[in-house]
Structure formats: structure tokens, C-alpha cells
């Protein structure tokens, strides 16, 4: 069953446009969102969070259109990015204490569990955290309100191999608990490990949206890795 439906979204910027982007996210699966820098991944993700106004098209979660049900939907989804740090000079405790008041399903037990798992210290401030720890803190906020859909923009960037491995394992566990994950990255080896489906975007257009196995079969050659397929596609695109 699809829990997220993105249908024909278009967005025009002076030097870039998103052209009729459509895909869906299957419930309880991890979907890798790949594309080179500037391909449209972040614009798509921002559209899915209603941070960017699309020119046309529709986005729906759990069968409800985002427009008109934004508050209700945001209670049930989580967003994390590796690139932004929130309130760098406030302690984690202060940020969490305020944030949890917005969520009706805030899970204090899950919060404590992930704090321990991620080795985060509540008295620390985001400015004192390494890039990897910032990613974990962002993830902690998303995971503690029992999000059914996680939208993760470059969640593994800046993480050391051990932390990345830990995180990928966590994604797999979350998936087993029915959480749907959209995972944008250019570290394709991460997707090889945990993704069920692949969405490939290039120049603002979706080139493929299918299962990982289908993607490997349709676009790859025997023995190819995801990265090799991705690079070949981009080179062909350039020609």
C-alpha cells in the first residue's frame, strides 16, 4: 500500500525546473532517492514538506492531500537533514523540551532509548556536536514522535563508517516496525545495503521509480554496483 503519493509536481525557477515529478512511497519500505547535486532532490523534498510551493501537481500522505491536512500530516511524519543545525546555542534538553509539546504522540521512552543509542548528551548544544552527531540529533527528534514516514535528506553525510552502519541498521529495524523511509543520498553504497526501492531523478525529471532489483536489472550490467549504474546514467545524460 502506498502511503505517500507525489503526482505531477512542477516547479519553475529561473535556471531550473521540476518537470511533472511523480512517484509513490510504499508503506514499510525504504526508498532511496538518488540524483546528482542540483537534480531536484531537495526541491522535491521541500515540496513534500510544503516548504516550497509547487506550480502544479499534488502531494498526498495516508490518502489525504497535504494542502488542507498539513498539521495532521506533520504529526505523523518526520524530517531530518544532515545539513542544518537548529538552535546551535540551546541545549538538546531545552530544544526537546519545547519540541515535544507540539506532538500528540511524543514517545518519551523512545526518546530516551535513541538518546542512549546515539550517545547524545542532553546538556550539549548543537554547536558542540560533530556533523555526525548533529545528524543523529535531528534523527532523534524525528524518531521520538513516532513518525510513520521519515523523510531524510542526506542523513548519512558526515557520519563515520561505524555510525553509518549503525544508522542503516536502525533504518532496517524501523522498516520492520512498519516505518516508511525516503532517503536522499549520493552515497549509493548505503542504498545498496538497505533500500527496497529506488527513485532516480535527473535534470528535474524522474528517470526511474521502481524496486531496487528492477532498477539494477533495467539499467545495469551484470556485476554493476548502484554507483556504477548511476554514473553511467549521468554520463549518458551529459552526452
Amino acid at each position: 500500500m502506498n502511503v505517500v503519493e507525489v503526482t505531477n509536481i512542477c516547479k519553475t525557477y529561473p535556471a531550473f525546473f521540476l518537470n511533472r515529478v511523480s512517484f509513490s512511497l510504499e508503506g514499510g519500505k525504504i526508498t532511496g532517492f538518488i540524483g546528482r547535486n542540483g537534480a531536484g532532490k531537495t526541491t522535491t523534498i521541500k515540496s513534500m514538506l510544503n516548504l516550497v510551493h509547487t506550480d502544479s501537481g499534488e502531494i498526498a500522505y495516508f490518502g489525504m492531500p497535504l494542502i488542507g491536512h498539513e498539521t495532521e500530516i506533520k504529526q505523523r511524519i518526520g524530517y531530518s537533514t544532515g545539513t542544518i543545525s537548529w538552535y546551535p546555542r540551546k541545549t538538546i534538553h531545552e530544544i526537546v523540551d519545547v519540541t515535544k509539546t507540539f506532538y500528540t504522540h511524543w514517545d518519551e521512552e523512545a526518546y530516551r532509548r535513541y538518546m542512549t543509542l546515539f550517545n547524545l548528551d542532553e546538556s550539549k548544544k548543537p554547536i558542540e556536536l560533530s556533523e555526525g552527531m548533529k545528524v543523529k540529533f535531528n534523527l532523534l527528534l524525528a524518531l521520538s514522535h513516532g513518525a510513520e514516514v521519515l523523510i531524510l535528506d542526506e542523513p548519512t553525510s558526515g557520519l563515520d563508517p561505524f555510525s553509518r552502519d549503525e544508522l542503516l541498521e536502525l533504518f532496517t529495524t524501523l522498516k520492520e516496525h512498519g516505518v516508511t523511509i525516503l532517503f536522499s543520498t549520493h552515497i549509493t553504497s548505503d542504498l545498496e545495503r538497505c533500500a527496497d526501492n529506488i527513485i532516480y531523478i535527473s535534470h528535474g525529471e524522474i528517470r526511474a521509480a521502481c524496486s531496487k532489483d528492477e532498477f539494477m536489472e533495467n539499467y545495469g550490467q551484470p556485476g554493476d554496483t548502484l554507483e556504477e549504474i548511476f554514473l553511467r546514467q549521468e554520463r549518458e545524460e551529459r552526452k
Binding site: T71, K74, Y79, I84, W86, Y87, T99, F102, Y103
Partner: peptide, 14 residues
């Protein structure tokens, strides 16, 4: 502190 973006991502209307 990226407050506006943070606030907009919370389950509240813009």
C-alpha cells in the same frame, strides 16, 4: 538558529 524553518516543520500551519 534557522528558527523559521524549524517552526514551519513543526505540526502547525504556516
Amino acid at each position: 538558529a534557522n528558527d523559521i524553518l524549524y517552526s514551519t516543520l513543526l505540526p502547525v500551519a504556516k
